[in-house]
Design a protein around this nucleic acid. Structure first.
Lengths: 338, 338
DNA sequence: CTGTTAGCGCATTCAC
DNA sequence: GTGAATGCGCTAACAG
């Protein structure tokens, strides 16, 4: 029942298949009345063109692949919104795969996408290691990384390290001296590592000894290490979290211990997820332009996909971040030991 | 430089194209040494099969289309995770489009997806009206709706109306008598309407006069109507929100007015977004199995797509919701007027 | 186990 | 402005 091909429509309309094709692809090259007949016939037969034919003939799919770690983190959901909107505007459909931060799933996703897409946007755990990227390059397919940063790959990101270093200075300016960092899995994310470097750099620049580092795996719902720091004899006055989701957990953990935020403990995040601004207390954070990061990826990728020409690493873009103040950040209480 | 076709590989390996094809599709039907030669040749030529050829020959794309209102709401992001995981397991890729709750974009998305997919999962504003659904049926393509509910369409959802009615009874049991509802745009969402019906039914069942209804457009960041209710002479003791995002806004609005939650005002949500449990106060809500809703859609759709046979409305599934208690819900203070 | 043959539906020449 | 002819890359049916 399903298939009424272009030829059937041609027959029904009393024209040739070429004309039917023209009606759908360049209507201005077809006489108005012929066009009318063809459109009527197509409607009558419920003609639905089969994309595969066009793809095969044109040697391109008009699809961009998108590979993300997870949608559980709103950062990537927001970025995906940006990708989807920009892709739609550029006439591309998007095909999505998620990896849960697992390199083997990155590879599987890329393998599945390679035959069907004209280009790829991806967020990988570690661009230096990712096998998936080697496969893409071998295939000669245009691609761009989002959030990642690496000198040999085209990337759209922010200055993670610099942003955290600035943030440390901001905390210092507000009087904080004991600053701890809560980090995602350092092995699994180049962002975490860059942000941690920024932390160390910022602390050094302020002449402070680096505070304790608490590392939390992505899938670990507990906050074990965090407990140790918050319950320690000399509690930090500020907790710098490497992403907003961790910061939310930290807020909750502080609340459980009866610590008031920000009076007893300041908490900052990184990412700028929309929900952060809606919380009580609202989350102070380094806001990335997540939507724009996605859109910028597509802006780079679409022309490259059109030309079937891979992007150079030099095409990388560094987008501006901005510090978004929030109620979770204050000055340390005067009555706390300095 | 890009294309090394199956024939080139065949030539290089000294076999026929069919054999190359077999190596990739049913390796067990090829002698080990032949297979080795072919794989080597493929690697040497960096052979990447072009999906379009296979799709054309097989008359199917192995792609499922997904049409969602937005990813800004974590409900849909969580559901999409479920869809993506289940689709990957079933051997399908997914192609995504977002509509921002706009029927015209639903239509555009469906039109773009129709030629390229074997089936569709979608969340529409109003299944009774959606033109997009007519187009899909006309094309004879299998599809399933998520979250929507309609007697003439295959749907995967929860009992929105019943869930809210139960929740009202729960509030009543805890002593609440003045209960207001905060609702999303009733015209734009059948979920909102169902939940509102549940509210009315629940109130009636408890012998309570229906409290005030505050309607908020999806894209309206203000909470104007809400302000009027919270600042009114006779404030409600509980605010039942038709989704979690609205509930978050309500929490913030209450906090701005110096109302304590739950002592001065209880707030409940609907959806069960993961973040709700991480907040302070944690959000009491009706939790939907968002991930499972997505997975169930794929479980229904995949076989239908395989068979190219549309699903019957009778295939619809109602998944269990559950009340998730949270700190945002308490008993009304004794010192408040009853 | 492997090769031969044929054709999926469409867009593109090139004539006219 | 339109039609006829061609082939994109791949897989399925059949023969051997």
């Amino acid at each position: 029942m399903s298939r009424a091909g272009i030829h059937a429509v041609a027959l029904e309309a009393g024209v040739s298949a070429s004309t039917v094709s023209r009606v759908f692809n360049c209507p201005q090259n077809v006489a108005a009345d012929t066009r009318g007949r063809v459109e009527a016939a197509a409607r009558r037969l419920q003609y639905r063109p089969l994309g595969a034919g066009r793809m095969l003939r044109r040697q391109r799919s008009e699809v961009l692949g998108v590979v993300l770690p997870t949608l559980h983190n709103p950062v990537f959901a927001e970025c995906l919104e940006g990708i989807a909107a920009a892709a739609a505007d550029a006439g591309y459909a998007i095909q999505l795969a998620t990896t849960e931060y697992r390199p083997d799933r990155e590879q599987a996703a890329v393998a599945a996408l390679l035959p069907r897409v004209d280009g790829l946007v991806l967020v990988v755990s570690d661009p230096a290691r990712a096998q998936a990227l080697r496969a893409i390059r071998a295939a000669g397919l245009p691609y761009v990384l989002a959030y990642n940063r690496h000198p040999r790959h085209p990337c759209v990101s922010v200055d993670n390290e610099g942003a955290v270093a600035e943030l440390v200075r901001e905390l210092h300016r507000r009087g904080h001296r004991r600053i701890a960092m809560l980090c995602g899995d350092l092995r699994a994310s180049d962002r975490s590592r860059a942000r941690h470097r920024g932390f160390l750099r910022g602390m050094a620049a302020c002449g402070l000894p680096p505070g304790p580092l608490v590392e939390v795996a992505f899938d670990d719902p507990s906050t074990g290490g965090l407990a140790a720091v918050l319950d320690g004899a000399v509690r930090p006055t500020a907790l710098l979290c490497s992403n907003d989701l961790l910061a939310l957990r930290a807020l909750r953990a502080a609340h459980r211990r009866g610590l008031r935020v920000p009076q007893d403990l300041s908490v900052t995040g990184f990412d700028g997820i929309a929900l952060g601004a809606e919380l009580v207390p609202s989350l102070a954070t380094i806001a990335q332009p997540n939507h724009d990061i996605g859109a910028a990826c597509v802006a780079l990728l679409a022309p490259a996909a059109q030309a079937a020409a891979p992007l150079a690493a030099a095409a990388s873009r560094l987008l501006p971040h901005r510090f978004r103040p929030g109620e979770s950040l204050g000055a340390p209480s005067a009555d706390l030991p300095t």
